[in-house]
Structure formats: C-alpha cells, structure tokens
Amino acid sequence: MIDPSWIAGLGVILFGVGLIGVFTRNNAIVVLMCIEVMLNAANLNFVAGTMHYGDVDGWVFTSIAIAIAAAEVAIGLAIFLSLYSTQETISLDDATTLRN
C-alpha cells in the first residue's frame, strides 16, 4: 500500500508543472492542458485524503472535479475555436484587438 503522503507529493509536483506551464506558455490549448494538470493534482490530493481518513467524501469530490474539468475543456475549446475563426490565432499574446 502506497503511503498517502507520496500521492499528495506527486500532486504538488503536478500542480507546480501546471502552474509553470500556465505562466510560460503562449498557446491557449497548451495553457488549457496545464489547467487540467492542475485540476488532476487536486484530484490526487482528494484521493490521498480519502485513503488517510478512510471516508468516501474525497472520492465524491474527485469524480465531480473530473466532471467540472470535462465541462471546462468543452467550453474552452469552443471559445478558442471562435477566437481562431475570427483572428486566425490562438496565441493569447497575438490576440490584441481589445487593447485599444
């Protein structure tokens, strides 16, 4: 049996990877992937908590958090598609019509 603290530790690493990616990447879809990685880090924490405390709340949270992440991807990709069809870019730095 893996100790829950290892699972939570993996969560910290994943969260760090996601956070760094969000701030350094420019492509909207890569940023979206990084957000998913961050959400999965939270899911690992919930699973580790369930193992440690021996109740099922964490599993419920995890499954609903996965559903939230799926909804977010669906909406995000649709929005990026409309951005691409009007501006022919999904780079967040190149889309600057609103600045002026």
């Binding site: 909207a28 919930f46 908590g49 990026f80 409309s82 009007t86």
Partner: peptide
C-alpha cells in the same frame, strides 16, 4: 472582440478556479 474577450476571461478564470480547487484539496 467576442472570441478574444471570452478566451482571456476563460483562461484567467479557469486558472484561478484550478488554484482554488487545489487549495480546497
């Protein structure tokens, strides 16, 4: 403007809520 506003608001909003959910965990 619509797509761009949506994309920016979406990215910042979902990063913020991902951080919030991690904090909650």
């Amino acid at each position: 403007a619509g797509g761009e506003a949506g994309a920016k608001y979406f990215i910042v909003g979902s990063v913020a809520s991902a951080i919030g959910i991690y904090g909650m965990s």
